[in-house]
Structures are given as structure tokens and as C-alpha cells.
Design a protein around this nucleic acid. Structure first.
Length: 296
DNA sequence: AGTAATCCCTGGCAGC
DNA sequence: TGCTGCCAGGGATTAC
């Protein structure tokens, strides 16, 4: 599940590969992914455009292609990989015997590859998304700031937007559980299920605590933990728990460094007791009952 | 208005 | 072995 560190890793990989590339042809094989405008209009609009810059806001990638800004959300299983004919090597390509996932630098078009951008130099950018929760949207540059999915986003971690004052403000009158608040992109942009669990463990807060019940000290710990766990994820190239791979088709290694996520029944790295898994607002939540007591 | 539940989708997997 | 049913989850939508 691509969250901020995964999307940022993909962005950095793409910057190395596709800046300056001109789109010759767009192939769309699924009608589910392109939300706006109509698929054939997007196809036409992107033709002959040159990729100038790639930025990120929360979990959204923004491809500046000149006349348009292409907004890409990877959903749950979205993958964006670069394909260069010159680098093709069959030894690097294989299908995982059980999961069928492609494990290679060079990803070929398969039944889950829903969109391909073919460049004038013969290379390509493939969008593959097994569960098809990802969405592409096209805006005029001046429309982007007012795009509905954009204006609602909360502060961007690692930037001046992320302030203690604004963080505190977001807690006022919020009776929902802290885990639910963390997953709300209006609270802090880019945090998803994995990093929410990690941040709560770092700050020693039970996922089911009511947001407004947190003490000032707990809020402070959480405020500091969020960028910390995201930075760690980024440092190790993202968390490849299921389908995430970077622009080169390679997995990250942060899954080896998670403290609680996916570690149900394993020992807490802090106190050695068993990590538990519960469901909070339809999402699995991993925590240590000893280090993160439900005390309020 | 705030919060919770539902739905989308596919592959993996437990159970029979 | 093959079938069935459930689970994973980001975010839009719907319900309360």
C-alpha cells in the first residue's frame, strides 16, 4: 500500500527516468482508472506533451506535462514502472511462482497493466494496478490548486506546513479514535495504515484512544513520531509488504524494520511482549498492549 | 457536521 | 483437486 515514503520513492525514481521525455502515444486498457476527463480525451491531451517536472502532495503524484498536470493516485496496488528497450534483459524478468507478481526491473504489459505512456525514444512508463483502486485525473495547471481532492489535504510533513499549532488545532472537538484521525488525509497528508501504526507505537498511544483524550505530551510525541517514521520509510526505499515496487520495479526494505505493522504475535521490540492486531474503522491495527495501554 | 459503515477490486489462502 | 467464502485496504459515497 503506497503511502508517502513509497510514493516519494517512486517520484524520485521517475524523475531520473522520464523528465524531458515526450509522449508519443497513450494506451488505456481499463476504463476504471481514468476518472477525469474521459479516457479518450486524456489519451489525446497527453499526446505530444513533454514531461517537465514531477512533484508529490500527500499520496498524489503530479506530473507536469506542460499544458496539463496529471494527478496520479496509486490506490492500494498501483505500480508505475519505467521500461527501456535498451535495458531489456530476460534474466531480470520473471513471474513469482505463487503470487504471479512481476519481479523485475523491466515490467512487461500484462492483464493488470491498465495504462502505458509510450515515449518518442521508444521507452515507456507502465501503470499496473491489480485491484484497480488507483485513479488518474488531468487538470489544467491553473485548476490544480482548486482540485477537490487537493484542497482538502492536510499539511505536508517535512515542510513548513507541518506546524505544532496546526496539529493541535486538528484535535479540537474530535471524538473519533486516533487511528481513524491519522488515516484521514485532511489531518496529515500521506499517512496510511502502516505508518499510522508505526507512529502510534513510537509515541506509545493506543490506536483506539479518542483523539481529544490525548494529553499534550502524547500529542507532542505523535507530532514528532509522524515525520520520523515516514523518514525512516523513505530512507529504506519504502515498505514492500505486498505489491509496492519503485519506478525501477524493485522492492523497498523498510518492511524489515517495522516495529508493529504485520508483526501480530511477534515480540514487541521494546518490552518483548506479544504484538496484537485489532480492527479499527475497518482497518487492521497493530500495537503493543503493554507499551500502548488503553488507559483513558 | 461529525463519525461510522459500505463499497469498489483481485489474488491469496483457509477450510472442506 | 477444486470450489467457496473471506480477507486485505484508500478513499468516495452513503447512512446515521
Amino acid at each position: 500500500m503506497p503511502e508517502l515514503p513509497e510514493v516519494e520513492t517512486i517520484r524520485r525514481g521517475l524523475v531520473e527516468k522520464v523528465i524531458g521525455r515526450t509522449i508519443e502515444r497513450v494506451e488505456i486498457r481499463s476504463n476504471r482508472i481514468v476518472l477525469y476527463p474521459k479516457p479518450n480525451q486524456l489519451q489525446e491531451a497527453l499526446r505530444h506533451q513533454t514531461i517537465r517536472q514531477i512533484s508529490r502532495r500527500g499520496k498524489f503524484l503530479v506530473l507536469d506535462v506542460g499544458d496539463y498536470h496529471l494527478l496520479i493516485h496509486l490506490g492500494m496496488t498501483g505500480q508505475l514502472t519505467y521500461w527501456a528497450q535498451s535495458q531489456e534483459d530476460d534474466n531480470l524478468f520473471f513471474r513469482h511462482p505463487r503470487t504471479g507478481l512481476q519481479k523485475a526491473r523491466q515490467h512487461r504489459v500484462d492483464k493488470h497493466t491498465h495504462i502505458s505512456l509510450y515515449f518518442t525514444n521508444g521507452e515507456a512508463l507502465h501503470y499496473r494496478d491489480i485491484r484497480q483502486f488507483g485513479r488518474w485525473r488531468l487538470y489544467r495547471p491553473e485548476e490544480l490548486a482548486m482540485a477537490p481532492e487537493f484542497v482538502k489535504l492536510g499539511p505536508e510533513p517535512f515542510t513548513a506546513d507541518y506546524t505544532w499549532k496546526r496539529f493541535l488545532e486538528a484535535f479540537k472537538g474530535r471524538k473519533l479514535r486516533i487511528k481513524s484521525l491519522l488515516l484521514d488525509q485532511r489531518f496529515v497528508a500521506g499517512v496510511g495504515n502502516i505508518y499510522a501504526d508505526e507512529a502510534l507505537f513510537d509515541s506509545r498511544i493506543h490506536p483506539e484512544r479518542k483523539a481529544e483524550s490525548l494529553s499534550n505530551d502524547e500529542k507532542r510525541r505523535l507530532f514528532r513520531a509522524i515525520p520520523r517514521v515516514l523518514k525512516r520509510g523513505l530512507k529504506y526505499g519504502g515498505t514492500s509488504f505486498q505489491d509496492y515496487i519503485n519506478a525501477e520495479g524493485l522492492a523497498g526494505t523498510n518492511q524489515e524494520r517495522l516495529h508493529v505493522y504485520g508483526r501480530e504475535g511477534e515480540k514487541c521490540l521494546r518490552c518483548k511482549l506479544s504484538i496484537q492486531r485489532i480492527v479499527v474503522s475497518q482497518r487492521s491495527s497493530h500495537f503493543c498492549p503493554h507499551c500502548q495501554p488503553d488507559n483513558k
